[in-house]
Design a protein around this nucleic acid. Sequence first.
DNA 1: GGCCACTATGACAACGTTGTCCCCCAGCGG
DNA 2: CCGCTGGGGGACAACGTTGTCATAGTGGCC
Lengths: 327, 327
Amino acid sequence: MNDVARLAGVSIKTVSRVVNDEPGVHPSTAERVLAAIDQLGFRRNLSARNLRRGSSTGTIGLVLEDVGNPFYSGVTRAVEEIARLRGRQVISGSSDEDPGRERELALEFCSRRVDGLLIVPAGLQHSYLVPEMRAGTPVVFLDRPAGDVVADTVLVDNIGGTVEAVTHLASHGHRRIAFLGDAPDIFTANERLRGYREGCVRAGIGYHEELVAMGPHDESSVSTTLQRLQTMREPATAVVAGNNRITVYVLRSLAGVAERPALVGFDDFELADLLSPPVTVIAHDASALGKAATDLLFARLDGDNSPPRRVVLPVRLVPRGSGEVHA
Amino acid sequence: MNDVARLAGVSIKTVSRVVNDEPGVHPSTAERVLAAIDQLGFRRNLSARNLRRGSSTGTIGLVLEDVGNPFYSGVTRAVEEIARLRGRQVISGSSDEDPGRERELALEFCSRRVDGLLIVPAGLQHSYLVPEMRAGTPVVFLDRPAGDVVADTVLVDNIGGTVEAVTHLASHGHRRIAFLGDAPDIFTANERLRGYREGCVRAGIGYHEELVAMGPHDESSVSTTLQRLQTMREPATAVVAGNNRITVYVLRSLAGVAERPALVGFDDFELADLLSPPVTVIAHDASALGKAATDLLFARLDGDNSPPRRVVLPVRLVPRGSGEVHA
DNA sequence: GGCCACTATGACAACGTTGTCCCCCAGCGG
DNA sequence: CCGCTGGGGGACAACGTTGTCATAGTGGCC
């Protein structure tokens, strides 16, 4: 800006006025300034501007588990969409389920003075965010609740979803329904397990420990588990898969197997309808999740300071075939 | 920092020293300062710091077509991974194939003084970036080349890939091979069309205009096209799909159809191996693409100022079944 | 006692902007 | 001719940091 001012033969304040379209600059002066800007390839430094004005940085921080997971990339897209409408950029990072990394990312974003923070928690402790929240940075938790702070949260109906999955399978005659879930310290995994258990009880088929295998899972652990489930004394005739990754592992393990258990997966995924049999899922909308959370965040930025809210988004069972096989 | 200094009864410079772990502060003073920091929930303002130090902002700008597309979210993940190792955050945005939006995002990132820019170009004109590049911001183009500037570019072997697809189908006896591509003004779509044409010529089956349908495509246009292709005088017995979205549209259109043409899709996708028949694809690695581009960017940041490079990553045909059906 | 070396600390400017206030000067009415 | 008005423009401080330099105090050595 200094250089521009020198080249145009004006003070830097005048350049500032031109750049900001402020009135009170003679058209011919403005033209000289614009020419100088063009010649020098000047671009206003947003950091300095925001610093001086004490205004927002126009950024939103997004901490999720893995941007590469289609579910979270759907969330990211929705967040970006809304942020864009409100003139904000999104800075994102993946925690890979590592609480330390989550914290590092979140605090780094705070140092950058993001206008707000969206977090898919990896850990259970979020008191480290208290100073930031008190300082006025709104924080919304996404997909999972915060550990030890009261804050806005947007979840999906994990329990209701798995209850429905079990009920659905039971209504098709299954009495030996297995559950393959993610690591039990992950909130959603635990909730879904609870839903599974409740579903079993409600269906009157009882809860049997030996039908449950919590993760972390990979392809081979799922494969082993399935074999065990199918060769036990009273074999499982149906499986509920606890998330999209596990569903895919199950499908891979079952590829080419003649005797397939019925299957309902939590999380919808592309092409589920084109597999044979098409996969019945508990669907919920990544973009709805992202949208709800971002809307909530912006409401806070707009001055809404009602007590923290907890939004639970509905899920729905999409019957496609794999879950309608009779026992 | 001012408040912290006041509370601790020291000058702000001393606070700065403590925050930056600079030597020469008496332990007892440091302790007082740390206590004050803790009490006030102080966090250093990174913008101000970077401004003062004239140092990098520690950010990388990433402009892509759609963060929600699994292909690009794979790219994003790889970029993030490497940026993280080098202590950078990633700011990303989706252009949705709109050149104006691409430009807006890129320039916004420049205003934020990103250390470097990764761009999946939507438009053909990139001279708007010349001032920025001259000012020292390295720019790497990804997946598609820049329009009218010479710059680092990382591509995949689009032509080679489609040549291979056609050759593969021809070697299984197909002589009427159709090509469904994206809008021809998209670089990759055009390249793949060229590869298709060259493949046809090499295979000695000739290039026939009526077997080509360029997009933009949606599910219904693909469906209509396929019907036309299968009912023409000499029907197509095989299809090359120009990208992952089109492949999915083709699969949906063919669901339940008895007479299925052979299919090879450009881009690999999850579950391709579990469909029936499993889908043969031209695979290339999103994360390799992101990694190559980011590596190149960091090389520039490290001072490499050799002439702009163009990297072409290999693709490989993965035969799975859908492309090995005989004519 | 005088001088030096060294430690701990602070004052001040500067990074690139913008908000505030002030000045200069042309034009105009009396 | 004087004073007022208003448009155009500049000087300067400030945003929150950090780099540079200065300074006060302390202890040791001749």
